[in-house]
Each structure stands twice: as structure tokens, then as C-alpha cells.
Design a protein around this nucleic acid. Structure first.
Lengths: 259, 259
DNA sequence: ATAGATGTTGACGTAGCGTCAAGGTCAAGG
DNA sequence: CCTTGACCTTGACGCTACGTCAACATCTAT
């Protein structure tokens, strides 16, 4: 009393390919194999198959199903673990749905994918007085016109790059690594490269300049490091005073060794 | 003013492998390629990359992202379509979570994966009078003890198999195919094989019997077909009177040609 | 000159089968 | 006996978006 591969496939509501796959991976062997190599399945195999399909329908992976079938007592544990995963997935989807909805609104309103409001609160002008006092009106004017002439997308790219840098600094600081470690120094290098992107600063002006210009950069960078610590408006970009202190130390070492 | 592959990878928060992949599939080409084959990316490429990563973070596939980048106006459409997909996924997950939760309870209570309550409402005894009247007390007793002696899993397997058969009948009937078509006749064959699994019926008793026994099966099967139509308790398994009529026709043709 | 970081292409692995391709087996009919 | 059609076999590629070696070339700094 057994069925051919097509027969059980139809009875159980799956395909013969699936059954061959289960045979290949050892999940469900045929109860009998003909002299011609044909696979035949009996009632017990049908029961197993239906359990497999039930669990698969619940979203479990085939290796997990295999374990569950081997050790019945694990069923509740496996399912409970799986349930956790499902809930996380649902939360992830909920967040994605919120983001997509928001982005659709932004695109409809602004027309571009990166709309203006994506970098609200990231306005260059908030440091006007500070910059003019330290590096002169000319420096601020250059930087300001640079910012204003950027397209929305370029602004967004800059913002994201800046935030990524800040996030990486915070991650490094909280990881407890040393300021002179390779990782921190790589970040310092990135930081200087980032500064080089802002026109009107010694860092950007020094590109292609002589040694005197480069010495200016050295002082500029170390001075910046101190400012990050002293000024809470900057310190918050690096996770507060502690993080900013880490940035200052790493920058000072980098400047001494490379600038 | 450009960066190496590692540089933008770090700036944008991804990996160099991803960038090479995007180059391979034509999603994001480097802005410049050195004489040595090195990839270099400029500001514009960084902007593109960040748009890609934004959309990917929303769950869009790379081919879709490619389209969106080509035709900016499609962005809202693509995102709206994607939103639909996300919502469906969330509903699917919600259903899976409900099922898994239910299954966990069942496993904890019953110990087996297929618990008793999975075949509530599928009790054999509901046709007691009908069976005794038509085929005698002996037939019913055989079938009843057969059912009672099954394990929970065998019962569940049988139930699912029966329901699968019913679902396939309904699908075929509503598809509007002919009762003498190959597909309907395949179903009829399955139906007889299914009947053969119930002890106490002429179909099962006839296994290995002579021609007289086989003639009994013929009458039994055609009689059953008529009953499916006449009795609403059976007809509902095949989608009501219309579906049952289709089953009856297909069975009559099958019996005439093969039994 | 050499070591170490970084770059290149090429290819395999992933989850779970769908989908040919090429060829053997079996039951029924002429 | 031969053919036809249905069903079976193994083998291998395809799909998503890269991660992860491997083998080898190049740049940078000492």
C-alpha cells in the first residue's frame, strides 16, 4: 500500500521536485525504492510529510524541521524561538512601513528623494559667530556660499556622511579602544579628509600648498579637537564630553604624526 | 577630489564588496578607473550611493532601485507598490504568529505536533446512521474501529488528505473544466484510491478480489456520487450542490471506463 | 628592497526549490 | 512487437545580495 512520487505530491499538496529535494537533503526518505530507482511512499511517510509541510508553513527552516522531527520534545522550544524571530520580523516590517510611508510623502511634496527637511537642524549657519571669531569673516562666507550652492541631494549626502563619521566616533569611543590604535587613527584620517571638504578652512585651503600651509592645518586640527570638548554644541556630535575627549586625543596624535 | 573604494565604503557605511557588486550589475559605476584598474568615486557617486542605500534600507530590490534612479518620477509609484507588498508581508507574518502560538499551545498540551483538536468536526461517527442504513452495521463497525485505532497523527494525515482532495475538486469544478477531461479523471482516480483507504467499504474490500467484487465497487462509487449531490452534509465538502454534481459526473465516467 | 595595507578578478556558498535537459520505464493500444 | 504518452530518474543552472576565501597585482612607508 504505497504511492508514487506524483501521487503523494498531489495528496499532500506539494510537488515531486520538493519530495526529491527532501530526499536529497535527508529530510524525508521514500519508504521503498523500486528496482528501477522509482521512489515510493507509504502511510507513515505521508504522515511525516504532512508534519514537515505544517512546520514549513509556520515558517521554520528545513534544518530546524529536521531537528524537530528527530527530537519531538524540542518542538515547543524550536517553535518558541521561531516565534521570537517572527515578532522581530514584524517589528522590522512595521518600521519599514513607517519609513516608506514617510518617504512617499516627502517625495510627493518635494519631488526629490532627498527632500529639504531631511537635513533640518543641520544648518551650517548655526556656527556663524564661532567661525567668524576664530577663522575670520572670509572663512565663514566661503563655507556659507559653499553650503548654499549645494543641491538638496548633495546636502543630504554631506549630512549623512557627517553623521556617519560621528556615529563611528561614538562607536569607537564607547568600545573603549585606545586613541592611538589603528582604528582610531583611521577615523582621525577620515575626519581630516572630511574637514578638507569644507571650503574656507585651513584644511581645504592647504590642498596642494607648501609646508607652511600644512603646518596651519596641524594647528587647525588640534585646535578643533579642543573646541569639540569645550563647546557642548560640538561635543554632542561625538556623544558628549567623553566622546569628544576621545576624538581630541586621537586627532592630536594623528596631527603630530601625519601633519 | 575622489575617494578609493574603501574610503566611500566607510563614508557611506557599507562594504567594498557591495560597491564591486553594484559595479558588476551596473547599478553604480565608479566615476573614474585608474590605469591599474582601481575604482575611484566622486561626490556625485557618493550621492547616488546614498540614495541607493536609502532605498535598499526601505526594502526595495536592486532592480527596482535601478529603475527608480533612472526615472525619478517613478519613485512614488515604486514606493507605493512596495508599501502594498510590505503590508501583505505583515499580514502574512501576523497569521504565522497566530498559527505558531496556537501550535505551541497544542504541543504543550497534547505532547504531539498534531493534537486532537486539529480534527475536531472531522469525526467519523457523524455519518453513523447513513452508513449503517446503506452498507450495514458491519461496514460501520469496521470503519469506526479503524478510525479509533489511528494515532492522532494518522488521523490528522487522513483529515488533511481528505480536505486536500475536496479542495482540489472544488478548484477543478470552479475552473470550469469538463468532467471527462484528463484532470477531472485524475481526480476521480485519486478519489477511488482515497475510498480504498476506508475499511469496511466495497472499495477497500475489493482489493485483490475477483470481478464480482470489482463490479460492486462500480456500483458503490456511482452510488456515492449520487449521495454527494443529494446530501448537503457531503455536498458541502465539494463546494455545495454544483461542485458535488461535478464530482458525481466525473466519478460516473471514471467508474464506467475503469471499474 | 621589502613588508603591510589595499586593490583586482574569479568563484563558491546561501534557502528552497522551479525549471529545463537528456534519457530510462511502464501501461495501453494498433 | 512497436509506438505513444505519461511518469520516473539524475544533473545542473537560476534566483537575492552580497560574504568570504583565493591568488595575485599595486601602492605606501620604512
Amino acid at each position: 500500500m504505497d504511492w508514487s512520487i506524483q501521487d503523494i505530491a498531489r495528496i499532500a499538496g506539494t510537488t515531486s521536485r520538493t519530495l526529491r529535494h527532501y530526499d536529497d537533503i535527508g529530510l524525508l526518505k521514500p519508504s521503498r525504492i523500486g528496482h528501477n530507482g522509482y521512489r515510493y511512499y507509504n502511510q507513515a511517510a505521508l504522515v511525516q510529510l504532512q508534519r514537515i509541510l505544517l512546520l514549513r508553513g509556520l515558517g521554520l527552516g528545513l534544518p530546524v524541521i529536521s531537528q524537530v522531527l528527530d527530537d519531538e520534545t524540542d518542538a515547543a522550544k524550536a517553535l518558541t524561538g521561531h516565534l521570537e524571530w517572527l515578532k522581530q520580523e514584524q517589528h522590522r516590517l512595521a518600521r519599514q512601513i513607517a519609513s516608506v510611508t514617510q518617504t512617499i510623502e516627502a517625495v510627493k511634496g518635494g519631488g526629490e528623494i532627498m527632500a529639504e527637511d531631511m537635513f533640518n537642524g543641520f544648518d551650517h549657519t548655526q556656527y556663524k559667530d564661532e567661525v567668524e571669531e576664530r577663522w575670520g569673516k572670509d572663512a565663514y562666507a566661503k563655507g556659507d556660499s559653499w553650503w548654499r550652492n549645494m543641491s538638496a541631494e548633495e546636502k543630504a549626502a554631506w549630512k549623512q556622511r557627517s553623521q556617519q563619521l560621528g556615529a563611528d566616533w561614538i562607536a569607537a569611543a564607547t568600545a573603549g579602544i585606545a586613541p592611538d590604535s589603528a582604528e582610531a587613527q583611521t577615523l582621525a584620517k577620515r575626519h581630516v579628509e572630511w574637514l578638507t571638504g569644507i571650503p574656507g578652512t585651513p584644511a581645504s585651503d592647504a590642498r596642494g600648498k607648501d609646508d607652511a600651509g600644512k603646518r596651519d592645518v596641524k594647528g587647525y586640527v588640534t585646535g578643533l579637537g579642543e573646541m569639540y570638548v569645550a563647546d557642548p554644541r560640538f561635543a554632542k556630535n561625538y556623544g558628549g564630553a567623553d566622546g569628544a575627549g576621545f576624538v581630541r586625543d586621537a586627532l592630536k596624535i594623528y596631527a603630530a604624526e601625519n601633519l
